[in-house]
Computed example of a mutant assay.
Amino acid sequence: MTATIAVRRRIVGAAAGLAAILLASIPALAADRCESMVQSDLNECARADYRTADAALNAVYVQLMKKVGPKTKEALRAAQKAWLSYRDATCALETMGLEGGSAYPMELSGCLKGLTDARTKALTAYLACKPDDVNCVGAFQE
């Protein structure tokens, strides 16, 4: 009975060790995929980069919405909705010639990321407004 318990403990310990090694290697695998010459890996890395940029944009947008007054919130919401339509239409246009090709997802994600990064920078600037700056969206407390 004691030998059986000892064997089980060794198996569980080995399994835990293997799991730890596998989990530790995930970031390395992700980095390797981004340096891959395989298009599907490049597509996934570009998609992940865009998702990161989109999350950053959403975080800044939420911060800004908390800072401004009700009238500005309404205007900001409308502007953001229009900007999202612009971004999506612009990237669809700019990648139109690649539709159906293996690099299309990578190029589309790259376009989306670039425009999203620019929008994040613009909204971040609004967060830095001084309260007495009558020309800065982030200062509108109405």
Rank of each mutant, 00 (worst) to 15 (best):
M1W: 15
M1G: 15
T2P: 02
T2Y: 12
A3R: 15
A3I: 13
A6P: 06
R8S: 09
R8N: 09
R9Y: 11
R9L: 11
I11R: 08
I11H: 05
I11E: 09
I11D: 05
V12E: 05
V12Y: 01
G13F: 05
A14C: 13
A16G: 03
G17M: 09
A19L: 13
A19P: 02
A20R: 11
L22G: 05
L23S: 10
L23H: 09
A24M: 10
S25Y: 14
S25R: 12
S25A: 15
I26K: 06
L29F: 14
A30Y: 14
A31I: 15
R33G: 10
R33E: 12
C34W: 06
E35Q: 14
E35G: 15
Q39G: 06
D41I: 07
D41L: 06
N43C: 00
N43A: 02
C45Y: 00
C45R: 01
C45A: 03
A46G: 03
A46L: 03
A46S: 07
A46F: 00
D49E: 09
Y50E: 02
Y50M: 01
T52D: 10
A55M: 05
A55K: 06
N58M: 04
A59G: 05
A59C: 03
V60C: 00
Y61F: 08
Y61P: 00
V62A: 15
V62G: 09
V62N: 13
Q63P: 01
K66I: 11
K67N: 08
P70W: 05
K71V: 09
T72E: 03
L76N: 00
A78W: 02
A78E: 11
A79M: 03
Q80C: 00
K81M: 12
Y86W: 10
R87L: 04
D88R: 13
D88E: 14
D88K: 13
T90S: 12
C91T: 04
G97F: 14
G100V: 06
G101L: 11
G101Q: 11
S102I: 05
A103N: 11
Y104Q: 11
P105F: 03
L108F: 10
S109E: 02
G110Y: 04
G110I: 00
K113Y: 08
K113A: 11
G114S: 12
G114W: 03
L115F: 11
T116W: 06
T116L: 07
A118R: 13
T120S: 10
K121Y: 05
A122T: 13
A122I: 13
A122F: 11
T124P: 00
Y126V: 08
L127F: 01
C129N: 01
C129Y: 02
C129I: 02
K130R: 08
D132S: 07
D132P: 03
D133I: 07
D133Y: 06
N135H: 11
C136H: 02
V137S: 07
V137F: 11
V137N: 04
V137K: 06
A139K: 00
A139G: 03
A139D: 01
F140M: 12
